[in-house]
Design a protein around this nucleic acid. Structure first.
Length: 271
DNA sequence: CAACGGACCTGCCTGC
DNA sequence: TGCAGGCAGGTCCGTT
């Protein structure tokens, strides 16, 4: 479900309800996420005050002063704030009670998500230590992207989805960025002119920033922590539109698989 | 190293 | 209606 814009939308939704608030009772109903939730996590969290809620890549980092709760939503995870007594749905795995009376509720049908604890400096955590730059920050620009890609032979789409190169670009926004840049998603990285890679970096920033602005993309069921959908799907040019006319030239959109992921592109505009 | 495929899960949709 | 098969917004890990 979530790519960077959806995770950032989630962060913005939960942050004001968490920062400065004390955590109360922690209820864990299902520990089998991508990695099992560690025994005793309840005791590590209970009674502590949230200092800050940050995001790194698609990880949400809830900082408690004596350590950090690391959350990942995987493919199907969501975090919502619920009123006391809100009925449980299937796959509501964790509730974290807040001193406001609300609870932060983790829901994740496929259980590809994660809930981890670390008391080390967060940048040292093995899952975060080797990540590439944030696409919406200064460490990511055209010169960086060209430097990272120009010797690679893999398909450009796979490369921009590789979190060691740049984080946060998932399947939807990889497809959309390549459409705006006019680049065939199958094209080998080392066969793309420098000026086109530089343009691609801008397009990635453009697409992600616009999607954050619109609260993310709701394809099936993404909702922000207040329960509202995102609106960026109205802006999608290629994702999920095989056979429909290209918005630019009206050629029917092509559909293929790259790295096992659904790929959509215009065979005329993207070269 | 770079690149690729498999693995982890449930739900939903399609087609027989 | 039932059931098999395929697909879904992520990403780690093992193998070439």
């Amino acid at each position: 479900m979530p790519e960077l814009p959806e995770v950032e939308t989630t962060r913005r939704g939960i942050e004001p309800h968490l920062t400065g608030h004390r955590l109360g009772k922690i209820t864990i109903r299902e520990r089998r996420l991508r990695w099992p939730i560690q025994e005793g996590l309840e005791g590590l969290l209970h009674g502590h005050v949230v200092q800050q809620v940050r995001r790194r890549a698609k990880y949400l980092l809830i900082e408690l002063g004596h350590g950090t709760l690391i959350t990942h939503l995987g493919m199907s995870g969501s975090l919502r704030l619920v009123e006391p007594g809100t009925a449980l749905r299937k796959h509501d795995h964790v509730d974290i009670r807040l001193d406001s009376g609300l609870s932060l509720r983790l829901h994740d049908p496929r259980r590809f998500g994660a809930l981890l604890w670390t008391d080390e400096p967060i940048e040292n955590h093995p899952l975060l230590a080797r990540l590439g730059p944030e696409p919406l920050e200064g460490g990511f620009d055209g010169a960086y992207l060209y430097g990272a890609l120009h010797t690679r032979k893999q398909a450009i789409k796979s490369a921009i989805m590789d979190s060691h190169i740049v984080v946060g670009v998932g399947n939807i926004y990889a497809n959309e960025s390549l459409f705006l840049a006019g680049i065939d998603p199958r094209r080998a990285c080392n066969r793309i002119a420098r000026h086109r890679v530089i343009d691609l970096a801008s397009r990635i920033k453009q697409v992600l920033a616009a999607a954050v602005e619109q609260g993310g993309t709701t394809l099936r069921d993404f909702v922000n922590p207040e329960g509202q959908p995102g609106y960026f799907q109205q802006t999608l040019n290629v994702y999920g539109r095989p056979g429909l006319p290209c918005p630019s030239c009206a050629t029917p959109m092509s559909h293929t698989l790259i790295g096992q992921r659904a790929t959509f592109y215009c065979p005329t505009c993207q070269r």
